[in-house]
Nucleic acid binder design. Structure first.
Lengths: 141, 141
DNA sequence: CCGTATCCAACAGGATACTG
DNA sequence: CAGTATCCTGTTGGATACGG
């Protein structure tokens, strides 16, 4: 019986899933999936991290221009919560007018790698998804 | 000048980011990051995909037991939107009582890989995040 | 320039009751 | 068993105005 490359990937995936679910049980009432969703399931966190990764150290209004459509309030809220989680740093320079620079921490950068994987997947498969939606909707008359 | 392993990783990450942002510009008003967040930024989609990946073909109420806390309504809503996007299949068996089985498509499985990466990251770093939150909160008096 | 404060609309999603 | 249908509440986040 032949074992293909795809088989190996499937086996590997199953193994990882098993490990993950076993780990998950230990945490009991603190499920990591739920926790990341509470954290990054908002509208702007992933975009902020991606942009900070791409641009490096960035000022508040710079970032605001890069993240299209974000309001001043939401950028503040988003950056604060990322800072609270240790994913970014916030440096204030005592100048007039004030200058504030945000930057990913190493923890934030490690998260960026995962997010980028997800973003690349989305970028590569958005066509197929859009197609699937069209077919699905057309079948509902 | 010495070039460390970490340096290589950083360069690689920067390259990927650059490619991604260039791709992103092409899509114009259809940003993949925003799109995935609209899709998976809800409360249950990621959990449903992870569980379907772990359990394979699964019936409605089986899945409901595995995804702790989900309501009947939200499981239906979540599964429908995943089906619409071509990430899962829904098979109805003409039996009494009815049996309906859900299963990841290959597209869904490819997404699962990315999600698992994110989930593992979360599982591995939740301690550090919790610690950071404690410190942050304590500094606010 | 970089925020905070307040107000408010939209929507996600829970509870419950009912059906093929 | 596997769903709809309806109702209702809490939260997200946009708009706007103001402050250090």
């Amino acid at each position: 019986m032949e074992v293909t490359n795809a088989d190996y990937q499937t086996i590997d995936l199953q193994k990882k899933l098993k490990v993950f679910f076993q780990e998950d049980e230990k945490h009991h009432e603190f499920c990591p999936v739920r926790d990341i969703m509470d954290r990054f399931g908002d509208k702007w966190s992933l975009l902020a991290i991606l942009n900070l990764g791409y641009s490096g150290k960035t000022r508040f209004n710079e970032l605001r221009k890069k993240i299209d459509g974000i309001s001043q309030r939401m950028l503040t809220v988003t950056l604060r919560s990322l800072e609270r989680d240790g994913l970014i740093t916030r440096k204030i320079y005592a100048e007039v007018p004030p200058r504030v620079e945000y930057e990913l921490t190493s923890l934030g950068t490690s998260l960026l790698q995962q997010i980028l994987g997800l973003a690349q997947w989305a970028s590569g498969n958005m066509g197929e998804i859009a197609q699937s939606r069209l077919e699905y909707d057309s079948k509902l008359q």
